[in-house]
């Protein structure tokens, strides 16, 4: 079943730079998709449009039944609640504990304390950090911080998890550790779209791979067919 559909999407920034053009793409529920390409090929712009950080100049983007391009700024939260986003720089609140960082996403919606507690612990268990709930981000390693960010992204039970170079700041082993966590989450039914530069990871994971160049899809490898 289709979760994301992009039709004739074009994005030109105010500076005149066209980052995405003639882009058509469909991603099904439960897929794990890598998006690769050289710097400036439009990877980041593409995923930013998925969670409505950027608006397409033309074309249509449907995510989970919502026409994302037509969302007004005041209504952006509607799509954000269905999507988890993980970044290269983790984006954790430095003055909040691991528990608070993850619970933050649920508290906004006014969930009961017990429900928040059980969901937070479940998410932290999934990423293997249940024993560090009282630590602050600065007391954790890079890999652990990224796992907290992943726990925060999935605690809501989103249909889609978008990862923008989540292993970019991590060493090889830690990076693979993060990939194992993401794979677990994918197995539980969450669709994952991950932008990366790390070809080794892409090769090892054996998932669908979309290659972008100058804002266009130049290759779309089906699961397990990508070779360098």
């Amino acid at each position: 079943m289709e979760l994301i559909r992009l039709t004739n999407v074009k994005k030109t920034y105010k500076t005149g730079v066209t980052a995405i053009q003639d882009l058509n793409l469909s991603i099904d529920k439960g897929e794990f998709v890598f998006i690769i390409g050289s710097t400036g090929c439009g990877k980041s712009t593409l995923i930013k449009m998925l969670y409505r950080e950027e608006k397409p100049t033309s074309g249509q983007i449907i995510v989970g039944g919502i026409d994302v391009g037509k969302l007004r700024n005041g209504k952006v939260y509607k799509i954000r609640r269905k999507i988890g986003v993980v970044f290269q720089d983790f984006k954790l609140l430095p003055k909040s504990t691991v528990y608070e960082n993850v619970a933050f996403a649920l508290e906004i919606f006014g969930l009961p304390k017990d429900e928040i507690h059980s969901k937070v612990l479940k998410a932290l268990e999934l990423v293997g950090l249940k024993h560090k709930i009282k630590n602050y981000p600065a007391q954790l390693s890079g890999g652990e911080q990224q796992r907290v960010a992943i726990a925060r992204a999935i605690v809501n039970g989103p249909k889609l998890l978008i990862c923008d170079e989540p292993t970019g700041n991590l060493d090889k082993n830690t990076g693979m550790e993060i990939m194992r966590v993401l794979n677990e989450i994918n197995k539980l039914g969450t669709t994952i779209i991950m932008v990366t530069h790390d070809i080794n990871i892409v090769e090892q994971m054996g998932k669908r791979v979309i290659v972008l160049d100058s804002g266009r899809v130049v290759k779309d490898y089906a699961k397990g067919t990508y070779r360098r």
């Binding site: 005041g74 954000r80 269905k82 986003v85 906004i108 992204a153 809501n156």
Partner: peptide, 9 residues
């Protein structure tokens, strides 16, 4: 971050 995780204005 609040905006990112779906907090309304």
């Amino acid at each position: 971050i609040m905006r990112l995780i779906g907090a309304s204005n």
